[in-house]
């Protein structure tokens, strides 16, 4: 326990320092890519809980991200900002602390909103298998988007503007680290093994007493909670939300991360999230040179080549610690 608190403090302090140093060190464009890396890590690692670890097939992850983003943005905009404006903004440490605490509350509420939808989607659809579940989740993602398009108080098709820009490097990577750590711990627990057993063989899992429906719902709830947090972080970084950011293309990006990294591998999802974020940007100079957008030809080709040469994904179902044993932690408190 003591060691855990120490690790937590060290990571927090490093991220806190990074929050001042990193943006100053790179140009805004590169910094933006770094921020997207963090958000995509959360998206990939969280979807991995459903698609990789539990072996279900969700293609509506962007829907959960949208719910989290819009819920937390609306709470910040309609409740927290008026609340903060009651107090004189004097930029003291105290008011900064206050603002960040409210931001975290807003993020968590957004996560809970997404988790609620995860529960609602999960419950009826989990008797469905494979493709059918995929279609239900895809439908869910699109329905959410259409609903948002028609809600005027959060901007509808125009987009939601004026969201306070409370998000930053610190919070995005703080939550990325948290989601990764929770995922690893999940995998090393009885809960995680139960999820894996569902992926392996549902009949055998039930035969040893695992309530598979309940565990599938748990996977959906946890995964959509994290996706909701990613949505909130995104909303408060850009300060603007538009339904077109959450089309099924966004869901597919998350799926690509999980498949490319290797189904079930958390390390794989992290690496793949970074690759899939950087690669399209790295190909951008090519566009200026050729005057046509070849990126969407080359990017899929690169992915295709990778999947053909390594169909099991970059990491298969292994973790970094399997490749580099010294990373393995001893199993004791």
């Amino acid at each position: 326990m003591k060691k855990q608190i120490l690790t937590f403090l060290i990571i927090s302090i490093l991220l806190f320092l990074g929050n001042f140093i990193v943006p100053a060190m790179m140009n805004p464009y590169l910094f933006m890519i770094l921020i997207y890396c963090g958000i995509n890590i959360i998206m990939g690692v969280s979807l991995n809980i459903i698609n990789g670890i539990t072996g279900q097939f969700s293609i509506g992850h962007a829907g959960f991200m949208a719910v989290g983003g819009y819920v937390s943005a609306a709470i910040s905009f309609y409740v927290l900002m008026p609340l903060l404006s009651l107090f004189p903004s004097d930029n003291t440490i105290l008011s900064l602390f206050f603002q960040n605490a409210l931001f975290v509350a807003s993020l968590l509420l957004g996560g809970l909103g997404a988790a609620l939808f995860g529960y609602l989607v999960g419950l009826p659809s989990l008797h469905l298998r494979g493709d059918y579940l995929g279609i239900v989740t895809l439908g869910f993602g699109e329905i959410i988007r259409v609903i948002i398009l028609n809600l005027d108080f959060i901007g509808g098709a125009r987009g939601f503007t004026g969201i306070p820009a409370w998000s930053n490097f610190f919070w995005i990577y703080f939550f990325a680290v948290a989601v990764v750590m929770v995922s690893f711990r999940l995998l090393g627990s009885s809960h995680g093994r139960a999820l894996l057993s569902i992926r392996e063989d549902e009949i055998a899992a039930e035969s040893i007493g695992i309530p598979i429906t309940r565990y599938k719902v748990k996977a959906f709830v946890l995964s959509s909670f994290f996706a909701g947090i990613a949505g909130g972080l995104f909303a408060h970084f850009i300060g603007y939300l538009n339904p077109s950011s959450f089309t099924f293309i966004k869901s597919f990006e998350a799926i690509i991360i999980v498949v490319l990294g290797g189904m079930g591998s958390i390390s794989g999802a992290i690496v793949a999230a970074v690759i899939t974020t950087i690669l399209p940007e790295a190909l951008r100079p090519l566009q200026e040179f050729t005057r046509t957008d070849f990126r969407m030809v080359i990017y899929p080709l690169l992915l295709l080549t990778l999947m053909l040469t390594r169909p099991q994904g970059l990491f298969g179902n292994k973790e970094l610690s399997d490749v580099l044993p010294f990373l393995k932690r001893k199993k004791s408190p």
Partner: peptide, 19 residues
């Protein structure tokens, strides 16, 4: 046989303890 094929031998038994 319906084992959890990709999981370790130990994990298969540990899963038996799940309940």
């Amino acid at each position: 046989i319906r084992l959890f094929k990709d999981l370790s031998v130990l994990d298969n038994v540990r899963l038996g303890h799940h309940i």
